[in-house]
């Protein structure tokens, strides 16, 4: 028996020491923050990425006026709303505008002219935009944008 206890004491001595980490031991007493930090970081990256993908959207208001009979308009007693009319069309693979100014002019020139207008005098005016089939939609929006910048209302016709 005495021999046995000696052997077991010898065996215990030969066993390698168990590594103990003070930090690991202490972490058992608090909440494990690692999962939360991981998830939070991934969510953060997701929102950052989606924000840059989505971009920021604006809305330009456009009226859709009813087609009126000219006779009814002239026979009415109400004063007509001051209205400019711009017809967009393609010439030599460029977008031109007819109706603002004398001759058809390139879109960019008309946009610059509109942007130089006094917003106080332009306020209340309605710009009616008409475009031929081949005119790209961005050209209509560009003209709309210029008109909105000087507080004009825009009607798509």
């Amino acid at each position: 028996m005495n021999e046995q206890s000696k052997q077991s004491a010898e065996h215990r001595r030969r066993r390698p020491l168990k590594h103990r980490n003070v930090l690991t031991r202490s972490s058992r007493f608090g909440p494990n923050m690692t999962p939360m930090v991981d998830v939070t970081l991934v969510i953060l990256i997701f929102f950052m990425a989606s924000a840059s993908i989505a971009g920021h959207e604006w809305f330009l208001r456009a009226d859709l006026p009813e087609i009126q009979d000219p006779d009814l308009v002239t026979s009415g007693f109400s004063l007509p709303t001051p209205m400019l009319s711009a017809d967009l069309f393609i010439r030599d693979e460029q977008v031109f505008v007819r109706g603002i100014g004398d001759d058809p002019r390139p879109l960019q020139s008309v946009i610059e002219q509109i942007r130089t207008m006094d917003p106080d005098s332009a306020n209340g005016l309605i710009l009616g935009i008409r475009a031929s089939d081949t005119v790209p939609y961005w050209a209509v929006v560009a003209l709309h944008d210029a008109a909105s910048s000087v507080s004009m209302r825009v009607a798509i016709r």
Partner: peptide, 16 residues
């Protein structure tokens, strides 16, 4: 077609 459906105004979505 929107005008025919009695809609008098729309918002055109653009990118800032």
């Amino acid at each position: 077609q929107l005008r025919d459906a009695n809609i008098r105004g729309v918002e055109l979505v653009t990118e800032q």
